[in-house]
Each structure stands twice: as structure tokens, then as C-alpha cells.
Design a protein around this nucleic acid. Structure first.
Lengths: 180, 180
DNA sequence: ACCGCCATGTAAAGTGTTACATGATTGG
DNA sequence: CCAATCATGTAACACTTTACATGGCGGT
């Protein structure tokens, strides 16, 4: 069983909330700023077909009484297990550096699927890993990256400050999720 | 003429500084945190071949007296023009949201190719566009996104704070580049 | 009657990832 | 001399992007 794309996981997470059609899902991508996925039909419809083939979603019999045809999909128990597994994976520094969008995606849906306590745990773990990443970057700046051009150093510092903002956010998120 | 990938543009920019071999370029990806590109041979060697085919780089006759074989590449005048064009493109909100890595890549190399004044201009323009992006996100949070779940709202706010950090960085970068 | 939006799909092309394959050279 | 690293490549595969294609429904 091949691994699932961020797009496929996002589709599953959205369908877990409520069954929806390809078109509805597409619209959600355009109107919400969550993760930047393509709203083109060429990405979503094939993705939905893949999910059907893998037995993770199922077309719902629509009431064709009248109105436009609209193929709704709902997730299967297998998909629910897959989602829980995805959300339970530990965060790695590699995730943070190579796929920050996927990390935030996981956070956004962990409350929905695993509860606020789990989301809070996620934020706390994220904070730890981000701090590790910051240390790594700082030691690069003081070590091998000490004699870069001014512009290159500034570019690296931008990354560093982005991580620092992320760390601050994670502490705040954990705090806010505690109060509920 | 098809558009160039971030990877291809990065290769050109690195080769502009000094001719190098595929292996050397690969190592640079591993040891520097600039943009996260794959260090796998399967991405770099085909990319170099594409650049050769398009007449943007040229293999350099190596001195095969002894030592390991090492195919160095140098860029052509055509590539230099392509690089300057790339760096001179205006920054769009779309760039910032969909390809922030590409934006920082452009910043990092604009000083090298166009001078510090151009890099400073770039930072100033970036600041403006980021502020626009922030306004856009904030109006989403107060408008259609007002009744999201706590976790979803936090996720969006993370994006917002990332942009705010980027804006602060841009002002600082512009200031630092002024002093030179 | 017609334009535009809703709604779903297909086809082609290109890129990146993973894995595999090969040989030379340096160091212990 | 044996292992690790240097150094370059190829092949299969899957995904995303872009463009094209189709048809029903709603409003004017």
C-alpha cells in the first residue's frame, strides 16, 4: 500500500467532516487559505478516483430526483483508521523542514479527529522539534555559514525567524487549547 | 521555450558564481539550508542535461591529467540573460503564497547578480506585497473564516504570523543592505 | 435562445522521487 | 586489498499542471 499524498489526506479529512462532491471540495480550496492546493479538476478528480480504488472513500447514492448530478463521497472505516494513523505520527525535524504544510494540516485536523487534548499534545511536540531545528540553523550560521554574502546570510536568517515565529505560535496554541 | 524550474534556476545561479560539477552542486544542497531541494542524483543530473539541451550551460573541458573524472559546467550568456530576467520579475502575492521558497531564492541571488541596490529594492517590494497578503488573510479571518473551529483558526493564524515575521524581516533586510 | 456557471472528467507532458547500476579512487 | 566515498548516470513510477471536452441547469 503506497503512501498517501497531502492532497489525498486533506480530501479524506474534509470528507470525514461531511460527505461532499468533487466540486464542493474544489471550492473549499479556493475560498480557504489552508494549505495551498490546486483547485484544478485535473488534480482533485483523479485523486478521488485513487481513493475509491484503494477503498478509502465510497460514492454515495445521490437522490437524483431532480437538480444537478452531484457525486457525493463518504469515507470508509479503513480511511478513518488511516487518518488516525497519519495524525498520530511523531513530528520530525525533517517534516518541519521539508513539509511544513503537511505539519500544519495535521494540526488543523487533529482536534477534529482526536480531540483538543491531542491537538495540544501535537502543538507541544511541534514546539520541541522546532526548537531543535532552530538550534541546528543557528549552529550553521555560526559555523560553516559564517562567511556567506550578506544577502545569503539574510536569506538564512529569514528561515530562522520563520521558525522562531512558529515556535512562539506553538506555545500559544498549546495554551489556548488547554482552556477547553 | 518552457519555463525554468526553481531547481534549474538555482543550478544556474550557483554555476554563475563558479563552474561546478553535478556532484559538487549536490553537496551544496546537503550542506546548506537554502531552499530544500533533493540531493538525489535522479533530480540533478537530468536537470543539468535539460540545461545543456536548452543551451544554458556548457560542459567545460576538464584537465584529465589524473584524479577523478569530474564534469564541470559553466553557464552561457543566454543563461545569464535568463537569470537577470528571473530576478527582475515583479513579486506577486501569488508568488508569496504559492512559492515562498522561490521568492527567497530570488532574493538570495539578486545581490550577487544585480548588486546590493537591486536586492534592497527587492526587499522593499517584498515588504509591500507581504503586507497586502496580510490584509487579505486578516479580512478572511474576520469575514468568512470567523466561525471556524479553534484548531483551524489557529492554523490560519500561524500562516498570518509567518507573514508578519516575513514583513519584519524584509524591513530589516532593506535597512541592512542600505549600509553598503 | 443564449450565455454563463455548475459539475465532472480525460489526455499529454513534464518533473521529482526512489531505486538500481557502474566504475574510479583514496585511505587504512 | 578492501571498504568507503567520489562521481555519474538510468529506469520505473506517480503526481501535478495545463488544456481540452462535455453536458445540464438557471437566469434574462
Amino acid at each position: 500500500m503506497r503512501h498517501l499524498t497531502n492532497l489525498e489526506l486533506l480530501l479524506l479529512a474534509l470528507l470525514q467532516a461531511r460527505p461532499a462532491s468533487g466540486y464542493t471540495l474544489r471550492k473549499a480550496f479556493v475560498t480557504t487559505p489552508l494549505g495551498h492546493f490546486s483547485d484544478s479538476p485535473g488534480s482533485i478528480y483523479p485523486a478521488l478516483q485513487r481513493l475509491v480504488r484503494r477503498g478509502l472513500i465510497r460514492p454515495v447514492k445521490d437522490q437524483p430526483a431532480s437538480g444537478r448530478r452531484k457525486q457525493l463521497f463518504s469515507i470508509t472505516p479503513k480511511a478513518l483508521a488511516e487518518l488516525r494513523d497519519w495524525l498520530s505520527q511523531p513530528i520530525t525535524r525533517d517534516d518541519i523542514q521539508h513539509d511544513p504544510g503537511g505539519v500544519m494540516l495535521r494540526f488543523a485536523f487533529s482536534a477534529q479527529l482526536l480531540g483538543n487534548a491531542a491537538a495540544r499534545e501535537f502543538a507541544l511536540q511541534l514546539e520541541i522539534r522546532v526548537h531543535e531545528t532552530i538550534v541546528e540553523l543557528e549552529s550553521f550560521l555560526h559555523g560553516p555559514g559564517a562567511n556567506m554574502t550578506a544577502a545569503a546570510r539574510l536569506a538564512v536568517e529569514q528561515g530562522l525567524e520563520g521558525y522562531q515565529a512558529l515556535a512562539r505560535w506553538a506555545t500559544r496554541a498549546a495554551k489556548e487549547l488547554k482552556r477547553s
